[in-house]
Amino acid sequence: MLKYIIKRILLGLLILFGTSVIIYFLVRNMPADYIDRNTAARVSQGLITQEQVEQMKHLYGIGDNSFWGILSNYFTWLGNLLKGDLGISFVYGKPVAEVIGRYMWISFGISFTALIFEIIISIPLGIYAATNQYGVADYTVTVLAMMGISLPSFFLGALLIRVFSLELGWFPMTGLRDATKILTGFPAFLDLLHHLVLPMVTLVVLSIGSLMRYTRTNMLEVLNSDYIRTARAKGLSEKTVIYKHAFRNTLIPLVTMLGGIIPSLFGGAMITESVFALEGIGYTAYNAVLQADVPFVMGYNMFLAVLTVLGILISDLLYAVVDPRVKVGG
C-alpha cells in the first residue's frame, strides 16, 4: 500500500513537471506583459529608458523571450518553487501563495456550500428517478437535470440577475457586500449570505445534473444485482431494500467521484465568479490572465494541476477504502 502511494506520488510529480513546462511556455508567450503595460507611459515621456525596463524584466525573471531564454527562466522558476517560493504577484505586490490563500477561501466557502446543497438535492432525486425507471418522475427529473448541465453559467447568471435582482429586487446584483452600509459581526454575515444566494443557486443548478445522473445509473445497476433479489426474497420492505441495501452500495462510485470535485472546490468557478463579480480565486485569476500577471497565473495554474493530480490519487485510494473487493497495488 505504502509502496503504491509512493509510486503514485512520484508519477504525479513527473506529470506535474510536464504540465508546468507547457503552462510556463504558454504563459510566457502572453502578449503585453504587466511590466510593459505599466512602464509604457513613462518610457514615452522619457522618464525611464527601454534598457531600464528590460533590466526590470530581467530582475523578475521574464527578460529573455527567446526559446532558450524562457527555458532557463523556467528552471529558475522551478528552482524557486522547490524552495517553496512561487514568486511575487505583479498586480498585488505580494507573494503568489499568499494571494492564492487569501482568495481561495472565499471560493472554497461558496463551492463547499454549493456542494452540500448539490448532494442533498441530487442523491435523493437520483434514487427517486432510479426506483421509478421510465416513469413520468424519471423523465421529469432526467430532463431537468440535463437542462442544468446544458446551461451556460453566464446565461443562467444573467437570467437570475434579471429576474430576482432587477425585476423583483430580492437579491443584490453583484459583489460580496453592501458598499453603502458599514456592517460588522452577525449582520455582516447575513449580508454576505444575501449576496451569495444567486451565485450559489447558479452553481448548484449547473452541477446537480451530473451527480444526479451518476446516482441514477449506479442505483439502477445495484438494483439489478443478485443480493437485492435476495433481500426482496427475504420479504424485506421496499424501503429497507432501497435505503439499507441498495443505497449503501451506490455510495461506492459516488465517493470516488468526490476526488474529481477537488479542483473545482478550491480552484473557484471562473465564469460564475466573473458574472457576479465575486472576489474569489477564479475571478482573480481571470483578471490576472487579462493583465498578464505572469507569476500569479503560473502559480494558479500549477495549483489547479496539483489539485487535479491529488484528486485522482485520492479517488483511487478511496475506492480501495470503501470497496474491500478492490485491491490497490501493482
Partner: peptide, 11 residues
C-alpha cells in the same frame, strides 16, 4: 489531462 481547461484556453 491535468492541464486546467478554462485558464489554458484563456491564455
Amino acid at each position: 489531462y491535468c492541464l486546467p481547461g478554462m485558464p489554458i484556453l484563456l491564455i
